[in-house]
Design a protein around this nucleic acid. Structure first.
Length: 576
RNA sequence: CGGGUAGUAGCGCAGGGGCUAGCGCACUUGGUUCGGGACCAAGGGGUCGGUGGUUCAAAUCCACUCUGCCCGACCA
C-alpha cells in the first residue's frame, strides 16, 4: 500500500479525551475514528489489524470443529420474551417497534437466536454434539463507554455456542475453548489469565473470564501467588476468621454520633470484628413469566472488619438488580441509617447475612434508633435471614484453598466462557431424543471474545513514547518501507518486488521530510522498517530495523532484499 | 441516571458585551532545504454546538437543549 493513498492521517497531538496510551495512539496513528460515544469506525490500518486477529480466532475455532455462521443483529422481541431476558435486561438492550408494531431488539448476544437455530436443527442425540460460532456486531447501550475501544457500545464479538447431550460433552467443549482461548491470546501476543467469574445475566453455573492485567482495567482480580487460586472479586472466596462465644442477651447502649464502624469502635472501645454492619439496597425482583417488577429492600449484614461485595449480595438475594436504598425507603422498613440492623425490620425485607456474622456471637449492631446500638446481638435469636458469603475479598486476605495472602489487581475482560446448561434450551424448548427415546433438554455453552477490545489491550501492552509497536501477528502490515531517495523509480521497483514476494508492505512514497516519515512510522508501529536513503543506497544496501528493538539498524543487500525480509518476518513470527 | 467539565477552522487551543474572530499544527501555491516532526513568502478554510431571550449591539450575558469527556451508579 502506498502511504500517499492511505485513507487516514496521523495526528501530532492527542485528541482531547484520549486518556490511555493505547487509545491515544490508535487515534493518532489513524487506526480508528470516533463517530459517537462508544462508536468507532475502523480505518484501513485498524481494520487490517482486526482482520488479523479475526483470522487467528477463526483458525482456532475451526480447529475445534466449530462451524462459522452469521446470525442477525435484529431479533424479534418475542424470542427474548421466551427466556425472560426481554424483561430482565434493562436499558442496556435497545428495543424498537417495526412497522407492524412488533417488538424488536438489537441483539446484545445471541443465545436466544442460536437456541432457536438449535431447536430447528436438533432432533436426535445422533446430531450432537454441535458447535457454531460467528463474528458479529453487538450493540449494548452501555451507560458509560470509556477508554477508546476498551469499553464501547458497538463492537464485534466472536461468540460460539455449543450443543451437547450431556454434561460430560459440555465439559469437554468447555475445556476445548478454555485451551483454545489461551492459544488465541498467545498468538496475538496478549498476556492473559483465566479467572473464575460470575455468570451474570448469562445464567449457568461454571464460568471463566480471560483477563488482561492492567491498571486501566475495571475489574478486580483476586489472585493467590502461592497456589494459583484466581477469581474475579465479584465471586472471589477467602478464609474468614470466626470468633464464636457463648451467646449473651442483647443490651441497648447509647452511642451518640457513631454512624460508622470506625466511630462505633472508638465509642465502645471494641475491635471492628465485634461489630456487624448493614448495607441497604433496593433490589428489583422480576417475574420471568409475566415480566412484572417488584422492588424489595435488601439488607446485607457483614462483620465490621469486612466489606460487602454487591455482586455476591445480589446473587444471594436472587435479585435482578440492586441499587443503593434511599433514606426514606430504609426508614419505611423500620430501620435507621447509621444505626441500622435487621433487628425488628419490616416483614418482606430480604435479609442476607454473611457467614462471618452468622458464626460470630455477641456483635454490636444498630438498634434502629438514632444514637443507639445493641450489644451482644446474635443471628438466629435476634434476627433471621439467608446465610451466604457476601463479603468482598481484598488484598492480604487469606486464600480459600491454601490460606496464604491473596493479592488484588486490576484487569480488562477480553473473553469469557460459560457453561449455560439448560437455562436456554429449557426455556426455549430446544430438546432432543436420547437413545432410549427420552426427551431431554440440550445442554449448552457460550463463549465470547471481544475482538476490538483485544486490539485495544494489545495497543495498551505494546507501545512506547513514540507510538505503537504491535506484534507482527496483528500489525496491519509486516513491513514499512520508507524511501528517502529522490529516484522514485528505484523505490517503486523495490516496493513491487516486496509485494510480489508476498510481503505485506506499507510504502511511504510521500514527499515528506525524513523526520516526518520516521515519526509517523514510529507512531503506526509496523514491526519491520526498511529505510532506503542515500547513505546506504549508494552501496546497494538499505537499512532494516525492528520497531522497538534497541539494536542498531541492520544493513541488507538490495539484491536479495525480499528473501532476507522473509527470513526476518519468519523470525519475528516465531517470537510470539 | 447523579456529580463535574468542555463545545470557537481538520486537530490542539486563545478571545468572555463594541471595529474585519485569532494563534500553533495540518492544508494549497511558489521557492530554498533534504536521514529524526525544516525554512521563507503568498493563500484557502468559521452559520463561535443548537434554539429562544436580554441589548442599539451577543462567540461573549440569561434560559432551555444537544453533544463529548471525567468521577460515580451501571456493565456478558
Amino acid at each position: 500500500m502506498r502511504q500517499s493513498r492511505l485513507f487516514s492521517k496521523t495526528l501530532r497531538e492527542a485528541p482531547n479525551g484520549a486518556d490511555c496510551k493505547g487509545y491515544e495512539y490508535l487515534l493518532r496513528a489513524g487506526y480508528i475514528d470516533q463517530l459517537a460515544a462508544g462508536i468507532f469506525s475502523l480505518l484501513p490500518l485498524g481494520f487490517r489489524s482486526i482482520q488479523k486477529i479475526s483470522a487467528i480466532v477463526r483458525e482456532e475455532m475451526n480447529a475445534l470443529g466449530a462451524q462459522e455462521i452469521l446470525m442477525p443483529v435484529v431479533n424479534p422481541g418475542d424470542l427474548w420474551k421466551e427466556t425472560g431476558r426481554f424483561y430482565s435486561i434493562d436499558r442496556e438492550m435497545s428495543r424498537f417497534k417495526d412497522r407492524n408494531d412488533r417488538d424488536m431488539v438489537l441483539a446484545m448476544t445471541h443465545e436466544e437466536c442460536c437456541t432457536d437455530l438449535g431447536r430447528n436443527v436438533i432432533d436426535s442425540y445422533k446430531r450432537l454434539p454441535l458447535l457454531v460460532y460467528q463474528l458479529q456486531t453487538k450493540w449494548r447501550d452501555d451507560p458509560r463507554p470509556r477508554a477508546g475501544l476498551i469499553r464501547v457500545r458497538e463492537f464485534t464479538m466472536k461468540d460460539s455456542y455449543s450443543f451437547d447431550k450431556d454434561q460430560e460433552g459440555l465439559e469437554k467443549v468447555y475445556k476445548a475453548h478454555y485451551d483454545a482461548y489461551f492459544r488465541i491470546y498467545k498468538r496475538c501476543g496478549l498476556p492473559v489469565i483465566a479467572v473464575g467469574s460470575d455468570s451474570g445475566m448469562m445464567g449457568g453455573k461454571v464460568a471463566h473470564e480471560y483477563m488482561y492485567l492492567s491498571p486501566i482495567g475495571e475489574d478486580t482480580i483476586i489472585h493467590c501467588p502461592s497456589c494459583g487460586y484466581t477469581a474475579n472479586r465479584q465471586v472471589a472466596r477467602f478464609q474468614k476468621d470466626y470468633y464464636p462465644e457463648a451467646p449473651k442477651a442483647k443490651e441497648l447502649v447509647e452511642t451518640p454520633d457513631a454512624k460508622t464502624i470506625e466511630d462505633l469502635c472508638k465509642c465502645l472501645n471494641i475491635p471492628a470484628t465485634k461489630t456487624a454492619k448493614a448495607l441497604f439496597m433496593v433490589g428489583t425482583f422480576i417475574n420471568d413469566q409475566n415480566g412484572e417488577e417488584e422492588d424489595k429492600l435488601v439488607v446485607g449484614i457483614v462483620r465490621g472488619d469486612m466489606d460487602i461485595e454487591e455482586n455476591k449480595l445480589q446473587n444471594a438475594a436472587k435479585a435482578n438488580s440492586l441499587r443503593p436504598a434511599h433514606e426514606e425507603e430504609i426508614l419505611a422498613a423500620n430501620m435507621v441509617p447509621g444505626f441500622g440492623s435487621p433487628i425488628g425490620c419490616k416483614k418482606g425485607t430480604v435479609v442476607i447475612v454473611d457467614d462471618s456474622v452468622a458464626k460470630s456471637n455477641n456483635l454490636v449492631a444498630g438498634a434502629n434508633k438514632a444514637g443507639y446500638h445493641y450489644l451482644n446481638t446474635n443471628f438466629g435469636t435476634d434476627y433471621d435471614g439467608i446465610v451466604a458469603d457476601i463479603a468482598s475479598a481484598a488484598d492480604g486476605y487469606r486464600c480459600p484453598t491454601c490460606g496464604k495472602a491473596l493479592s488484588a489487581s486490576k484487569g480488562v475482560e477480553v473473553g469469557n466462557i460459560f457453561q449455560l446448561g439448560t437455562r436456554y434450551s429449557e426455556a426455549m424448548n430446544c430438546y432432543y431424543q436420547d437413545e432410549n427415546g427420552q426427551r431431554k433438554p440440550v445442554i449448552m455453552g457460550s463463549y465470547g471474545i471481544g475482538i476490538g477490545r483485544l486490539l485495544a489491550c494489545l495497543c495498551e501492552e505494546y507501545n512506547d513514547e513514540s507510538g505503537l509497536k504491535l506484534p507482527i501477528a496483528v500489525a496491519p502490515y509486516q513491513v514499512h518501507f520508507i524511501s528517502l531517495i529522490k529516484d522514485t523509480e528505484v523505490s517503486d521497483k523495490i516496493y513491487d518486488e516486496l509485494e510480489k514476494a508476498g510481503i505485506e508492505v506499507l510504502y511511504d512514497d510521500r514527499k515528506e521530510s525524513a523526520g516526518v516519515k520516521f515519526a509517523d512510522a514510529d507512531l503506526i508501529g509496523i514491526p519491520i522498517r526498511i529505510t532506503l536513503g542515500n547513505r546506504s543506497f549508494n552501496e546497494g544496501k538499505c537499512e532494516v530495523k525492528v520497531r522497538g528493538s534497541q539494536e542498531e539498524a541492520m544493513s541488507f543487500d538490495l539484491d536479495n532484499l525480499a528473501q532476507e525480509i522473509k527470513t526476518l518476518i519468519a523470525k519475528l513470527e516465531q517470537r510470539v
